[in-house]
Simulated assay, not measured.
Amino acid sequence: MDISLNSVLFAFGLTLFAGLSTGIGSLLGFMSKKFNPKFLAGALGFSAGVMIYVSFIEIFVKARDSLESVLGEKGGYVGTVTAFFAGVALIAIIDKLIPDAENPHEMKIVKTYSEGAHCKISERQTEESARLMRMGIFSALAIAIHNFPEGLATFMSGLSNHTLGISIAAAIAIHNIPEGLAVSAPIYYATKNRKKAFWLSFASGLSEPVGALLGFFILRPFFNDLTFGLVFAAVAGIMVYISIDELLPAAEEYGEHHIAIGGLIAGMIVMAASLLLFA
């Protein structure tokens, strides 16, 4: 399949935007008096709704169409399902290999940090600034590892369809905000240096565009309907796992159950409407 330079640049720009939104998390923490956790809960639910809906309704279908053109109807469907669950397995393995204390999916520190810049995290967490610094650095590394497949997901979506890419980039950007908080909070409390906390949080998102570029250049020599379909189906699996494992639990932690579910449904409705408008 032919891919234009403009499409590649557009997809990369979306991935860069999504990845660097970790810096927004730091800024929200530093402006915590104006920060409403319930709003973030709704936004995270909204992001999950966008990603789940588009994964099953748009990305999975496109992957299946692409694979069926090469493997036939049954072979294409089997290939799509297999690649989908391979994507789920990939992100689950990455998640499993990262210890809970450094895992961005276990962001126990974020809620406290967002409620006030001067509140204590906990006696255990403030015993040693060195331990807090280590927590922040390892959170940054963990998020960088997680962002590799997310970057590929955003990039591939933007490469396939500009409207789809914008929607996915916005959803990924929303879900990167609390990850940015997870990095900056312990570093700030360890060093009392806002700039250092911000820049390390900001830099942790760089792995997203890096992951997109690496994935693209590795796959580019083999890029055809078969590889596109397999990668796109895996991307759908990755996004569904992220939504269920990370976004929805985080949304409920920040706010109330119905706020999270309301955001989820709203995300699906908006995504459905945008796909209908630009169909």
Rank of each mutant, 00 (worst) to 15 (best):
H162Y: 10
I52E: 06
T112F: 04
R124P: 00
F222P: 09
G255F: 10
E127H: 05
L14Q: 06
V78D: 07
A185D: 11
R220K: 15
S26L: 02
A250L: 08
N161C: 07
I137M: 08
T126G: 02
D65L: 14
G116Y: 03
L71A: 09
T82M: 13
G237Y: 14
S204F: 00
P149M: 03
L40C: 00
T112E: 12
I121K: 03
A173E: 04
Y77K: 08
I59R: 05
I59T: 06
E253Q: 13
E123S: 11
F30N: 01
E102M: 11
F232Q: 12
G211I: 01
K195I: 02
L5W: 10
A170K: 04
A92Y: 14
Q125L: 13
S157Q: 05
L206T: 15
F217H: 04
S184P: 11
A43L: 15
Y113M: 13
K96I: 11
L206D: 04
F228S: 04
A153Q: 03
M239A: 07
R64E: 15
I145Q: 01
Y77T: 15
F228M: 05
A234L: 11
E73D: 12
I143D: 00
V210F: 12
G19E: 06
R220E: 14
E256Q: 11
A272T: 11
I52C: 07
S55W: 07
R134N: 11
G165Y: 01
F148V: 15
F217L: 13
I59W: 11
I177Y: 01
F84V: 09
A173V: 05
A197I: 03
S7A: 15
A190M: 01
L71Q: 02
F60H: 12
S184A: 13
L5V: 14
K74L: 14
A153I: 09
Y254P: 01
N103C: 08
I168G: 02
A83S: 15
I244W: 10
P149S: 06
F217K: 02
V54S: 15
A18I: 05
Y188L: 11
S243V: 08
S243F: 06
L214F: 14
G72Q: 07
L200C: 05
E123W: 00
T191D: 04
K120Q: 09
G13P: 10
G180P: 08
A18L: 06
V240C: 07
L277K: 13
L44I: 01
D245S: 15
I174N: 10
F216G: 08
A233G: 09
F85T: 09
A86D: 08
K34Q: 04
G13A: 13
V110A: 15
I52K: 03
I98W: 01
